Lab assay of single mutants.
Amino acid sequence: SEEELIEKAEKLRKEFEFIWNGIRFIIRENADEIRRFEELLKE
């Protein structure tokens, strides 16, 4: 039914948001290391 689809979509959206926030947190935490690594690659 349509309601089930909406519920599934909402659940997926929440899971995606949770994963995305996790990725963003990891990137933020490691931003300095990532930048340093990029500098090494440029040399």
Results as ranks from 00 to 15, higher is better:
Arg28Gly: 12
Arg24Gly: 07
Ile23Tyr: 00
Ile6Met: 07
Ile19Ser: 00
Ala31Val: 06
Glu15His: 13
Glu33Pro: 09
Glu2Asn: 07
Glu7Ile: 11
Glu38Met: 13
Arg36Val: 03
Asp32Arg: 11
Ala9Ile: 12
Leu41Gln: 01
Ile34Gly: 04
Ile19Thr: 00
Glu4Met: 09
Glu4Asp: 07
Glu38Tyr: 14
Leu40Ile: 09
Lys42Ala: 11
Asn30Arg: 09
Ile19Pro: 00
Ile27Asp: 06
Glu38Leu: 15
Ile23Lys: 01
Glu3Pro: 03
Leu12Gln: 06
Lys14Trp: 14
Ser1Gln: 08
Glu3Gln: 06
Arg24Val: 11
Ile26Pro: 04
Leu5Asn: 06
Leu5Thr: 05
Arg28Lys: 09
Arg35Val: 09
Arg13Ile: 13
Glu43Leu: 08
Glu3Tyr: 04
Ile6Tyr: 08
Lys11Phe: 06
Glu10Asn: 05
Ile34Cys: 13
Glu3Val: 06
Glu10Thr: 02
Ala9Leu: 14
Lys11His: 05
Arg28Cys: 15
Leu12Lys: 05
Glu33Thr: 12
Glu4Tyr: 03
Ile23Leu: 11
Trp20Phe: 04
Arg35Asn: 08
Arg28Met: 12
Leu5Gln: 07
Glu17Met: 04
Glu4Leu: 06
Leu5Pro: 04
Arg35Gln: 05
Ile6Leu: 12
Asn21Phe: 14
Ala31Asn: 06
Gly22Pro: 00
Phe25Thr: 14
Arg35Pro: 03
Glu39Arg: 03
Phe37Pro: 02
Glu33Ala: 13
Ile34Pro: 01
Glu7Gln: 07
Glu33Ile: 15
Glu17Thr: 02
Glu10Leu: 01
Arg13Phe: 13
Asp32Leu: 12
Asn21Leu: 14
Ile27Thr: 04
Lys8Asn: 10
Lys14Cys: 13
Arg36Asp: 04
Leu5Ile: 06
Lys42Met: 10
Arg28Leu: 13
Glu17His: 03
Asp32Pro: 07
Lys11Val: 01
Asp32Gly: 09
Glu17Lys: 01
Glu33Tyr: 13
Ile26Glu: 02
Asn30Ile: 15
Gly22Met: 15
Ile34Phe: 04
Glu38Ala: 13
Gly22Glu: 14
Gly22Asp: 11
Glu29Leu: 14
Phe25Asn: 14
Glu2Arg: 11
Arg13Met: 09
Glu3Arg: 08
Lys42Tyr: 13
Ile19Cys: 12
Ile19Lys: 00
Glu15Trp: 15
Ile6Lys: 07
Gly22Leu: 15
Arg28Ala: 13
Glu4Asn: 08
Lys42Gln: 12
Glu43Lys: 07
Glu33Ser: 11
Glu10Ile: 09
Lys11Ala: 06
Asn30Gln: 06
Ala9Lys: 11
Lys42Leu: 10
Leu41Thr: 01
Asn21Trp: 13
Gly22Trp: 15
Gly22Asn: 11
Arg35Cys: 14
Leu12Glu: 03
Leu40Gln: 04
Arg36Asn: 03
Lys14Ala: 09
Leu12Pro: 05
Ala9His: 08
Arg35Asp: 08
Glu10Pro: 08
Glu29Ser: 10
Gly22Val: 15
Lys8His: 11
Glu10Lys: 09
Glu33His: 10
Lys8Asp: 09
Lys14Asn: 10
Leu12Met: 04
Phe37Cys: 14
Glu2His: 09
Leu12Val: 10
Glu43Ala: 12
Ile26Cys: 14
Arg13Tyr: 13
Leu12Arg: 04
Glu29Pro: 02
Glu43Trp: 10
Arg24Met: 08
Lys14Tyr: 11
Glu17Gly: 04
Ile26Gly: 00
Ile26Tyr: 01
Trp20Asn: 00
Ile34Lys: 02
Leu5Lys: 04
Lys14Pro: 10
Lys8Gln: 10
Lys8Thr: 07
Asn21Thr: 07
Glu2Phe: 11
Phe16Ile: 08
Arg13Asp: 03
Ser1Phe: 06
Leu40Ser: 02
Lys8Ala: 10
Asp32Lys: 06
Phe18His: 03
Gly22His: 13
Phe25Met: 14
Phe37His: 01
Leu12Asp: 06
Glu43Asn: 12
Leu40Cys: 14
Glu4Ala: 09
Ile26Asn: 00
Glu33Asp: 04
Asn30Glu: 04
Leu41His: 01
Ala31Leu: 12
Ile34Leu: 09
Glu7His: 06
Ile19Phe: 12
Ile27Lys: 01
Phe25Tyr: 02
Asp32Phe: 10
Phe37Gln: 01
Glu3Trp: 10
Glu43Gly: 12
Leu41Pro: 00
Asp32His: 08
Ile19Leu: 03
Glu29Lys: 08
Glu10Ala: 04
Ile19Trp: 03
Ile6Val: 03
Leu40Arg: 02
Phe16Val: 06
Glu38Ser: 10
Ile23His: 03
Glu43Gln: 07
Leu41Cys: 14
